[in-house]
Amino acid sequence: MIPTPLVDAAFFVFAAGAIVTGYRVFRTDSMVRAAFYLLASFSAVGGILVLLGSEFLGMVLLLMMAGEMLIMAIVMVMYMMNPAGLNPMTMVHQNRVAAVAGLAAFLALAAVGLLGDFPDRPAPQPALATEELGIELLGDSMLVFQTAGVTLLSTMIGAVAIAGRRGRSGSAEDGSIEPALQPDEEDAA
């Protein structure tokens, strides 16, 4: 087993990394950089999950997020007017309200974490954890697992139907109204 001080050090590195990169997501001009910062944040959380003994979840999180963030970067480059962030932009609204809400959420949840009284019943060794999860997935929670699968399938079908050129009801181009684009200066102001 890895000695505890090493685990502690790793946790602090991962936690600081997750929070800093998570914050950087909203503080960078380039969309691709934002996606990569978010991926870094997820990777750090994946690392913490592994430290906590939930190896399977940590690795699955990494596996999932790598693909997801690549798609996210591509989607942003596709649709953003200024994906490289060449022109400085502040694409935020209600900044103050949002900051207060974010801080309030943090304080409330942290208070719960600090003040809450959680039972001290540690989980078993990782090997057992993975095995137990497998048995749970295909045993008692089979219904949940299958529901998740069906949900994903219907999501796939729904997403294709929404995004496709031939939309849910006929061609997406028919009968659509294109809004007048506001002058760009107004957006930046």
């Binding site: 007017m81 060449l86 022109n87 400085p88 932009m89 760009d184 200066e185 107004e186 957006d187």
Partner: peptide, 11 residues
């Protein structure tokens, strides 16, 4: 506006 040679978001 920022001396970056651009104007607005995409200009």
């Amino acid at each position: 506006p920022y001396g970056q040679g651009g104007s607005g978001m995409t200009g």
